[in-house]
């Protein structure tokens, strides 16, 4: 079992005005995994990411990286952010420079890399994310999907151990979302731990290794997607629904189309294959 790299213990935080956002939240992120934090809009998922990144300091509890709690001094937060990157939901909140190349170079230069090394890293990142053609374009003239990829490149170029992504596919069309997920797949394959917030249960079920269900300022349950997202009561409490593919798989299992030891479908293709299996079985019976 992979070791825990990032952990939140008993986090509590209230917005100015006293509205509680986090109340005794526990979360464990294992090294190299893709963890989806699921919850309805406005539940405080972004606030949680800002804690995991060291931007916000909890009123109680602690955040730990490789077992060491964040000390919140200027140097400690800086060291923390070298290892824990953050990509905000709205790319315009991150992009500031005159061109894409300049913007992506900002993080590597702040890491203290020499200009030649930073330049090489920016070129490599832009190539890896398939946006090298945008290098000389100004961010404000890009499409939303392109801006999303550039904002991601800005964080990826710093090569963090853990990358926090706030609603990475929000606002993207199907093609844009698939493209972004393919990039994240490559990052995960290279060993980057990915933590992303979403209210898209289908995305979380199909793509994450583990999901954490955010409910009432704390993580209600965390574990394998097919376990956590099969619990209809927990989902209802978090104002979420069961993923369609999982619902279909569970229905197929209940109807005997899928054996108790057979793995549940995870993608649309799996679900279609299962559906065809069910139809052919029905035909045989008829």
């Amino acid at each position: 079992m992979a070791a825990v790299i990032l952990e939140a213990r008993g986090l509590a935080y209230a917005y100015p005005g006293g509205v509680a956002a986090l109340s005794g939240l526990d979360l464990a992120v294992k090294r190299g995994q893709r963890l989806a934090i699921l919850g309805p809009t406005g539940a405080g998922k972004t606030t949680l990411l800002l804690h995991l990144n060291g931007t916000l300091k909890p009123s109680a509890g602690s955040v730990l990286l490789d077992g060491d709690a964040c000390a919140y001094s200027r140097s400690a937060v800086r060291a923390w952010r070298r290892r824990v990157g953050l990509v905000l939901q709205e790319p315009d909140d991150q992009l500031f420079a005159a061109t894409v190349f300049e913007d992506v170079s900002f993080g590597p230069l702040n890491l203290g890399l020499a200009p030649a090394e930073a330049r090489a890293r920016v070129e490599r990142t832009l190539a890896d994310l398939h946006i090298a053609a945008l290098a000389e374009r100004p961010p404000h003239l890009l499409s939303f999907g392109q801006k999303k990829r550039v904002a991601l490149a800005g964080a990826v170029a710093m090569e963090p151990d853990v990358l926090l992504l706030d609603e990475p596919t929000a606002g993207l069309d199907h093609h844009g979302a698939r493209h972004l997920l393919a990039v994240l797949d490559r990052l995960a394959a290279a060993g980057t731990t990915l933590v992303f917030t979403t209210h898209d249960v289908d995305l979380a079920y199909g793509w994450a290794d583990e999901v954490a269900l955010f409910d009432g300022g704390r993580v209600g349950s965390q574990g394998k997607p097919e376990t956590v997202l099969a619990d209809a009561r927990s989902l209802a409490r978090a104002h979420l629904r069961m993923p369609l593919v999982l619902a279909l798989g569970l229905a197929a299992r209940a109807a005997g189309v899928l054996g108790a030891d057979d793995s549940l479908p995870h993608s649309h293709d799996d679900a279609l294959a299962l559906f065809e299996r069910g139809v052919s079985k029905l035909n045989r019976v008829v």
């Binding site: 991150q94 005159a98 190349f101 900002f106």
Partner: peptide, 24 residues
């Protein structure tokens, strides 16, 4: 609000007060 979020975004990339970038 936008300026505040930009500050958070820049801080996540270790902003130290200057906006140094590589220009081509």
């Amino acid at each position: 609000e936008r300026a505040r979020r930009l500050e958070i975004g820049l801080a996540a990339r270790l902003h130290t007060g200057t906006l140094d970038t590589l220009a081509a």
